[in-house]
């Protein structure tokens, strides 16, 4: 189970398809004019990603290597058509707002990249989790960008007015130029946060482990500080700590 949690964390933070891998830039820039569009686009892509990953993983030994890309596209476009028809039936306003970008999920780089890099080499369950994690990462990134753009560009969030009345919305953030500006700034902030977190983790690897210890075993704290060489035999205890520490650090990174 732990493996899957780690996989989901990878997709949302460490290997975020949009903010780290820079995949799927076209829908990222085009559909983030409002938060509702971003959520719709992200969830539609997530649904397609999970389904296509599962089916490609199931068929991975059956599909000949030479025509695998074409086969993936066929599978993906099947699911995209299903999602498109469902959205048209039940979420008509969102379907109208997203327009062309729903059918364009077929050629979304994230979906093809996960099919080629992950689903075609792994069993069904990890592939499904991979689809979920990458889809969530995509959705989180879209919502982040769309929040900045909608709040600055329209003064609203999910359609609700959130800025004070004297704030005059800066239209540029709704326009394409604002998409590039926002994406650049967010990627810069994420990179800064990640390097800061990495530097922090490098600077304080052991003291943090020690800091946690005193709650449980108070008397051990001075001993741990004294002997750096004694870390190796004692590593069983602190080794559990670094994992929680990592997740804390990565949470910091994503918050940026």
């Amino acid at each position: 189970m732990n493996k899957y949690v780690k996989q989901i964390k990878e997709g949302i933070v460490d290997q975020n398809p949009t903010l780290v891998q820079f995949l799927g830039m076209c829908p990222t820039l085009a559909t983030t004019t409002s938060v509702s569009n971003a959520v719709g686009m992200g969830l539609a892509a997530t649904a397609v990603l999970i389904c296509s990953n599962v089916f490609i993983s199931l068929l991975r030994k059956f599909i000949p290597k030479e025509i695998r890309i074409a086969s993936y596209i066929v599978i993906i476009s099947g699911f995209v058509t299903a999602v498109e028809l469902l959205m048209k039936a039940f979420l008509t306003p969102l379907y109208d707002a997203l327009g062309l970008y729903i059918p364009l999920i077929v050629v979304n780089c994230i979906i093809l990249a996960r099919a080629e890099a992950f689903a075609s080499k792994n069993p069904v369950l990890p592939s499904a989790v991979d689809g979920l994690s990458m889809g969530l990462g995509f959705t989180v990134a879209l919502v982040l960008i769309a929040s900045v753009r909608e709040i600055l560009g329209a003064g609203t969030w999910l359609g609700l007015r959130v800025t004070p009345s004297f704030y005059e919305p800066a239209l540029i953030f709704i326009l394409p130029a604002g998409a590039f500006l926002t994406l650049g700034m967010i990627v810069a902030a994420v990179n800064k946060g990640k390097s800061f977190a990495a530097a922090y983790a490098e600077a304080h690897p052991k003291p943090e482990g020690v800091e946690v210890l005193p709650d449980e075993i108070v008397t051990d704290a001075p001993a741990a500080e004294e002997t750096p060489a004694a870390d190796e035999p004692a590593s069983e205890e602190p080794k559990e700590e670094p994992k929680t520490e990592e997740s804390e650090v990565s949470a910091n990174g994503s918050a940026d």
Binding site: E168, L171, I172, L175
Partner: peptide, 10 residues
């Protein structure tokens, strides 16, 4: 250019 795109009326 930024100001023109952001607040065209002003």
């Amino acid at each position: 250019a930024f100001l023109m795109l952001a607040w065209p009326n002003a």
